[in-house]
């Protein structure tokens, strides 16, 4: 068969399914895996649904300004891991640790076919951060201005309670500084020096990660999070931490 013949054949991929069907299948998958709006089948509690609130706060009800947050356009991630490399370089992350990483989901498409989705994860800079609550010496706190969950390495006693408290495995103990280390949205390495974005965002070739001020209606994160007909989810909403990393598929 030549290319010309092939072009006449109809495609058998998912593109031929009506979009409603595709969307319903996708929604079902996310509901089952407990990620869609708190999940309603596998998730232990469905807090968001119970109280009728979405994972996205009401406009104007962001507690910080700038309210730094990140939107992850998950479907576009190709796991090239340039974000990881940039993070390691920018923030001097040792070989045994990471501030951000890529996980891999797999969903069956029937038969032997499956669809892979790469899921970048990092500190969610939660509005109600469990790590901050448990720290005995306030070595980690939520910055009052930016909402960034920050560390003061000199205050850290190394009890590692924040590591057990974090629902996102976002923290590790860095022997070099004798303190727990974590993503600070590159505040120390970049934002505080006048740059406007994080190293991982800058490194991403697929425009997966979008960083910005959620409290600013002109920002791209605001527009993505408040776009119509967009499904937005967060990870582990049942912990009540109110994360600030939003995942979308469009």
């Amino acid at each position: 068969m030549k290319i010309d013949d092939l072009e006449k054949t109809t495609s058998e991929d998912l593109g031929v399914l009506p979009s409603v069907v595709r969307r319903n299948i996708l929604k079902l998958g996310l509901v089952v895996t407990g990620m869609y709006l708190g999940g309603s089948i596998l998730s232990l509690t469905s807090v968001r649904n119970v109280y009728g609130a979405g994972v996205v706060p009401e406009v104007g009800k962001y507690p910080y300004n700038p309210h730094y947050s990140m939107v992850i356009r998950e479907k576009l991630c190709i796991d090239c891991e340039q974000c990881k490399e940039a993070c390691v370089k920018t923030n001097h992350v040792p070989a045994y640790g990471f501030r951000t990483t890529i996980l891999e989901k797999r969903r069956s498409l029937g038969g032997e076919k499956f669809e892979t989705t790469f899921m970048p994860v990092l500190c969610n800079h939660c509005n109600r951060p469990p790590c901050v609550r448990v720290c005995p010496t306030t070595a980690t706190w939520k910055d009052e201005k930016t909402g960034i969950v920050t560390m003061n390495p000199g205050r850290c006693i190394g009890c590692k309670t924040c590591m057990t408290a974090c629902p996102y495995n976002a923290r590790y103990f860095k022997e070099e500084t004798r303190a727990v280390d974590k993503c600070d949205f590159c505040f120390e390495s970049r934002l505080s020096k006048g740059q406007t974005t994080t190293a991982c965002v800058e490194a991403c070739p697929a425009d997966v990660r979008v960083f910005g001020n959620l409290a600013d209606p002109k920002s791209r994160v605001f527009k993505l999070v408040h776009a119509p007909e967009t499904m937005i989810w967060v990870l582990r909403p049942e912990t009540g931490a109110i994360p600030n990393i939003y995942y979308i598929n469009s």
Partner: peptide, 23 residues
């Protein structure tokens, strides 16, 4: 087990976190 236990006496006082059960 606490990797910097020497920071505890000072940290516990100047950084006292009343929401922390460990504290």
């Amino acid at each position: 087990e606490i990797e910097n236990s020497w920071r505890m006496p000072v940290g516990n006082v100047i950084g006292a976190n009343l929401t922390s059960n460990i504290w």
